[in-house]
Amino acid sequence: MKVLVAVKRVVDYNVKVRVKADNSGVDLANVKMSMNPFCEIAVEEAVRLKEKGVASEIVVVTIGPNTAQEQLRTALALGADRAILVESNDELNSLAVAKLLKAVVDKEQPQLVILGKQAIDSDNNQTGQMLGALTGYGQGTFASKVEVAGDKVNVTREIDGGLQTVALNLPAIVTTDLRLNEPRYASLPNIMKAKKKPLDVVTPDALGVSTTSTVKTLKVEAPAARSAGIKVKSVAELVEKLKNEAKVI
């Protein structure tokens, strides 16, 4: 079966971001960009399904600026077969992204769509679920285990109190949680080979999707800073401070 994986180019998770002085957003000039960590897990899961003989083809898609081709090449080096870039320089909300992905799903007809559970920049956790509503497919969000069995996929999900397993009819949508797998690294020969794999570029207009949004960002501020704390010398002093100064125990 065909598997479609959506990936996003985001600021690297180790970067401590800074808010711009004019409060228009976060300063992303000259900071390291990477594939969103949850998307890496999604690519890895698709590659493992292929290695098990479950998946026959892996198509990786991203929506973003031309530079997002780097992340698509990374996915190709990890084992995806071909890539699609929906090129847009606007900052798109999840609903617009879900609509663009729906157009790609209609064209590609995958049996399984794998996304990360959230992007670490916008922290929205929406796109997979929205794609579920638009396609009408079942959704297995926050997956820590995925097993394809016949025309169904069993997804074990991380929920607040523990784990829950659901069975979804295929085609279906899965969003990955951290513990689904440990993503591999791309080897140098595979990085070289990935340069020759097909990468199509399309525009939102060509897909017939409008990307207007009902939500706009008015300003972005730095969070309130915590006042500097003190270092105590002993456990006894710590207990004394907690009891008498902070009065929390």
């Binding site: 609903l95 929205n124 929406q126 796109t127 929205m130 794609l131 509503a133 959704q139 929920i159």
Partner: peptide
């Protein structure tokens, strides 16, 4: 914004064709 709320609500938003505001 519990695992349930996060699971269900974006699906609702897309069905209503509106953006969602998270957390």
């Amino acid at each position: 914004a519990t695992s349930n709320g996060k699971n269900v609500l974006p699906r609702v938003a897309a069905q209503l064709d509106v953006d969602q505001i998270s957390e």
